[in-house]
């Protein structure tokens, strides 16, 4: 990417202030919910449980980083759940076939980048709406995976394959990847010209072009990065359990998109941060677990989760509008 400064320092500070509170509010919700549920059932606050919530859902947060970038750039991707299923199968098959572990880990990353960059190119240069391209790709990946594998589970994965079981200084790998990916992506998007170009493209592609940003190349780059994060999410997702299902996880794309939009990413493009989407992914996972802990009737858990997501989203929108009314840029 060519690095072209888009905004000045003043705008950057406004930018920071503008989003800091959205993230703070989500963090507050994460903590508030934990405390509230802790009152009902103290076991919820056990280190082990909180760690398990993070571990079991880190892959959603990681994939939501790339999804947020795609949405901020003014696009959408419905194929990511199917892609993660395909990449997991490729990775597992390589490992079982005796490929070196590094290959089994790196190929899904490369393949993820390739598939997504190709979709990005179709969106950017052939000007087909992203929803059409990715909806078609969803079908292709889903049907293709079953055609090729017949849905045969991958078992007997080699010991060294399980990346998610490793840790760095006692911190489990999925959490390390989630935090590192979120931090790097957030800093990159905030402080570099190529990162800022995503906002410019999503906000107003024509204006971005006039400012020297190449919106087409930005879109391809965003999709390629999204593929990279999907690959990283796959590594966590596929190496956590002893079996890989060789099917596309049903509805995963909606979970990921939900994390992004609850995280404050504007579906109209041009706004939002990946810190927000990661916090939102954690919040949603926490809600799912909390509903079991407080003995909600299992028949009502989905309704309550939907209601809580809706409440969070509406609260966020109202907050933004009030800020807008007070003269803040939103």
């Amino acid at each position: 990417m060519t690095a072209i400064p888009v905004t000045g320092a003043a705008a950057s500070r406004g930018f920071l202030r503008r989003f800091a509170s959205q993230e703070a509010l989500l963090a507050l919700a994460v903590i508030g919910l934990a405390v509230a549920v802790g009152f009902v059932n103290p076991r919820f606050l056990a280190y082990r449980n909180l760690a398990d919530i993070l571990l079991g859902n880190a892959y959603i947060a990681i994939a939501a980083i790339g999804m947020s970038m795609v949405i901020i750039s003014g696009n959408i991707d419905i194929s990511v759940g199917a892609l993660i299923g395909v990449l997991a199968t490729v990775s597992g098959s390589l490992a079982v076939a005796g490929a070196p572990t590094a290959v089994a880990w790196l190929v899904p990353l490369a393949l993820g980048i390739l598939v997504m960059a190709a979709q990005g190119a179709v969106v950017a240069y052939l000007r087909i709406p992203a929803i059409v391209v990715t909806l078609g790709m969803l079908s292709i990946l889903k049907g293709g995976l079953i055609s090729v594998t017949g849905g045969k589970w991958i078992t007997d994965l080699p010991q060294g394959f399980h990346l998610a079981d490793l840790d760095v200084l006692g911190v489990p790998m999925p959490v390390v990847i989630m935090v590192a990916a979120t931090a790097l992506a957030a800093i990159w998007m905030r402080d570099t010209a190529s990162g800022r170009a995503i906002y410019a493209t999503g906000g107003n592609a024509e204006a971005a072009r006039l400012c020297g940003v190449n919106p087409q190349r930005t879109v391809v780059m965003v999709f390629a990065l999204h593929g990279l994060f999907a690959g990283l999410a796959t590594l966590v997702y596929a190496t956590q359990l002893r079996v890989i299902q060789s099917t596309t996880p049903s509805g995963l794309e909606l979970t990921i998109i939900t994390a992004s939009v609850v995280g404050g990413v504007s579906i109209l493009g041009g706004a939002g941060t990946v810190v927000g989407s990661t916090l939102a992914a954690i919040l949603i996972a926490e809600i799912t677990s909390a509903l079991v802990f407080v003995n909600v009737s299992p028949y009502w858990t989905d309704a309550l989760r939907g209601g809580l997501i809706l409440a969070t989203v509406i609260a966020d929108i109202i907050r933004r509008r009030r800020r807008a009314a007070r003269g803040w840029r939103t």
Binding site: L254, V261, S297, T301, D302, R305, G306, I309, I314, R321
Partner: peptide, 23 residues
């Protein structure tokens, strides 16, 4: 009224309405 973007609103009610159906 609340100006929630349609995609966000309906993705949330997708979960909510299905949940109500189950409940």
């Amino acid at each position: 009224r609340v100006k929630v973007p349609p995609l966000i609103m309906t993705i949330a009610t997708l979960a909510l309405y299905r949940g109500l159906a189950e409940g």
